[in-house]
Design a protein around this nucleic acid. Structure first.
Lengths: 243, 243
DNA sequence: ACGCGCAAATGGACTAGACCACTTCGCGTC
DNA sequence: GACGCGAAGTGGTCTAGTCCATTTGCGCGT
């Protein structure tokens, strides 16, 4: 008697209704505005706080909202564009009109694991430098960067880096080595507690991970870098041309 | 008498402990293996199911696990690399050895909103074609693509597209128009219920959003496309050269 | 007038449980 | 032997609540 409905609607979870409600609010407010508290939204929308928080978390992850514990939830500033280019990080930023500083978190020598060995064209267990840096734009943490280079190929690199912060300049001046080609990959990830703290965000927040594998003119690998950017704050931009 | 500890540890949430436990398990198993059920993990780790699920959700979002309702949670296959290049989608895939099909979801004419007008260099309210397509690789949904083009510039485009699926071929053959330059931006987002269903994933799953704004030889805008890719399954790859 | 301390309010983490949708598989029936 | 039904088990969503960490601001004391 009853006919089954063949086309089932793509049922909408309740938290998504909350999300759309919040998007309405966000759309009508300038960045920095306070949005209703979680407990008020819970009452207004007749739902549980867990459900409200799920909607808020997605919007925070998309860079639409900012949460400040003890204070409130606010409409976020627009995202910042970041160019994908061959030039050094410092130069890139200067061109875009930003003031960039770098904080050396760690520089150590360790044995290459399987992946590092393959990337740097050395044997597993060979000595590699691991350099961890925090990139800041106009004083705000932007990315955590983990570089690996062959220790045999760049002897004394770490000591030189402590005096001259630009890695590319050190490579050019002290080792007469410059990357001319690179493979870059981009993917998503969730922030570890450590990276979250360094980048002043929450554990589990969505991030953009940029990996760069660069080579010199002879095709020999120079460095392998992975950079973690806050996905709620940055957008990568590339300019492509035919052929 | 008591000295305050100045360096507070980056305290680890409990769910992150669960996540690391799961990473141990994942590391020792081949793709496709079944991992313990949520309720078993709850008992084993002495925690609530909510906490277990938060850890699982992050790992699913990072492409390390796959959840199948009613069945179980499994170790995921490695991610697929996808090149960022100027050539058409169909050609790209063929080069990489994939079989790609395209499903036309919707093709309509609508009035340009503010952003579309700016991108396509037309007036707000001018007629634009909006083409929504689903891209499939070897039969599996890969991306949802939303293209917008000026209707005045490409009259009859939608009708032609129904016969010839490659947009770039239609543009070249019928309008003698070819994109030679493009700006691409990459950012993260959460899947809407509709996109989640089309891409066979969960609402709120992390995605990579690729926007392409392409121009012809005279610098006039041709199309503005946004593509949503599953972040747990795809990685973008670009090859950069100096200068 | 100033500053300190405390209370209130916020977001953050977590619990224990309910109910639903879907898959799987064994058992009974044909 | 093939089929179909149903129970059991899985992940999916949501509730209602606890306790914690941090911020804010008010009121009291000086």
């Amino acid at each position: 008697m009853v006919v089954a409905v063949s086309e089932r609607a793509p049922r909408e979870p309740k938290y998504y209704l909350v999300k759309r409600h919040l998007l309405d609010i966000i759309g009508s407010l300038p960045p920095g505005s306070l949005v209703p508290t979680e407990r008020i939204l819970t009452l207004e929308l007749g739902t549980s706080r867990t459900t409200v928080r799920r909607a808020l978390s997605e919007l925070v992850g998309e860079g639409r909202l900012v949460r400040r514990q003890g204070s409130g939830t606010y409409v976020a500033e627009p995202k910042i564009s970041w160019p994908l280019r061959m030039t050094s990080f410092t130069e890139q930023a200067a061109e875009a009109g930003y003031t960039v500083t770098t904080q050396l978190l760690d520089a150590r020598r360790q044995r290459a694991d399987e992946e590092a060995a393959a990337r740097l064209d050395v044997k597993v267990g060979a000595s590699v430098f691991v350099i961890e840096r925090l990139r800041l734009v106009n004083g705000a943490a932007m990315a955590v960067e983990l570089s690996q280079l062959s220790a045999a190929r760049f002897p004394g690199l770490v000591a030189k880096l402590r005096r001259e912060p630009s890695l590319y300049r050190v490579l050019a001046e002290s080792y007469d080595s410059a990357p001319v080609e690179a493979d870059e990959t981009i993917e998503t990830a969730a922030a570890s507690p450590r990276k979250a703290e360094l980048l002043d965000t929450d554990t589990g927040a969505p991030m953009l991970v940029l990996s760069r594998h660069s080579f010199d003119a002879s095709g020999a690998p120079i460095e392998w870098v992975r950079s973690w950017y806050r996905g709620d704050r940055y957008t990568f931009v590339a300019r492509l041309t035919a052929r």
